[in-house]
């Protein structure tokens, strides 16, 4: 029974997290000490908060009950499944912690808009996804090392759609920055969001290269193929797609400073929709995994 509750909690990370924070803050709002005893509602909220904190801790411990099943469904063989399951757990956990921290920091920088925590969430997910790929060699130090002499090309690991999106976003961001600098105070508000978008693109591109050239010893053919797929997953779903989503939102924030004409409003909405689409494409759903592994 307990295991089922814990697994259910691990499958609903984000709704649980939001509920936990609301519940934790609840007693401070509801508690009204009266002369006749404890406020029942506050006690119930405190107990609920404790339960939710426990379930939140389950998520922070990296539990992912479905990773093995997802890996077995999409992997071509059992060896690949073991590798994919490890990557899925690691990437999902890092993205969750990164996104949570990003949302919290976004609240701190909020200036009355709900967009700040969302922007922080996207930035945090991208950062967490990138951090998951920064791991140093774990094996015993040896004097003898081996390697494959096969060249690894960026195009084998990054989809053309993502590559084009990064280039278009970079160009749009630079245009916004030029407009901000040349047209004066009314447009200056678009400079920093555009800069943030550009930084996200640059960071994603640099991380893609780092993942492609990350150390790989000599491997059997099937393990090498599995590693290629894992690097492809890492370089697309892991951090590139969340970074694209974040950059699109930043472009929309920059564009919003141009006023609230119909054209600007439609463009801002379109950028938000694209950002949501790219974020959804970065999630570890079976459809997304099959699309990348099959390609």
């Amino acid at each position: 029974m307990m295991k089922r509750i814990i697994d259910a909690a691990a499958r609903r990370r984000w709704p649980l997290t939001v509920l936990a924070f609301i519940t934790i803050l609840g007693p401070f709002v509801v508690a009204r000490p009266d002369g006749e005893g404890t406020n029942i509602a506050a006690v119930v909220l405190v107990l609920a908060a404790i339960a939710l904190i426990f379930l939140l801790a389950v998520n922070l411990s990296g539990r992912d009950p479905d990773a093995d099943a997802r890996a077995l469904e999409v992997a071509p063989d059992s060896l690949s499944a073991v590798l994919f399951a490890r990557w899925m757990r690691r990437s999902k956990h890092f993205r969750f912690v990164g996104g949570l921290c990003g949302a919290i920091l976004g609240l701190g920088f909020a200036t009355g808009s709900l967009a700040s925590p969302l922007v922080g969430l996207l930035a945090g997910v991208a950062f967490g996804g990138a951090a998951a790929e920064v791991h140093s060699f774990q094996g015993r130090p040896r004097s003898a090392r081996s390697a494959d002499i096969t060249a690894r090309h960026m195009g084998d690991y990054v989809t053309p759609t993502d590559t084009v999106a990064l280039a278009v976003i970079a160009a749009a961001a630079m245009c916004l920055m030029v407009v901000a600098v040349t047209t004066g105070a009314g447009r200056w508000g678009s400079f920093w969001p555009a800069m943030a978008a550009l930084v996200a693109v640059a960071a994603a591109t640099a991380m893609q290269r780092a993942v492609v050239v990350r150390r790989r010893p000599a491997l059997s053919d099937d393990l090498r193929r599995a590693d290629d797929v894992m690097r492809r997953l890492a370089a697309t779903q892991g951090f590139t797609r969340p970074a694209i989503a974040f950059a699109l939102v930043m472009l929309s924030q920059g564009l919003a400073t141009f006023g609230n004409s119909t054209t600007v409003t439609v463009a801002v909405l379109a950028l938000w929709m694209l950002a949501i689409a790219w974020y959804v494409a970065s999630r570890q759903s079976r459809a997304n995994l099959r699309a990348l592994i099959g390609s």
Partner: peptide, 20 residues
């Protein structure tokens, strides 16, 4: 070989402490 490609998880307790 797998450990060289991607590290194994540190375990739930260490992960929880680090994440928290």
């Amino acid at each position: 070989r797998l450990d060289e490609l991607i590290p194994l998880s540190a375990g739930p307790i260490k992960t929880l402490v680090a994440s928290a």
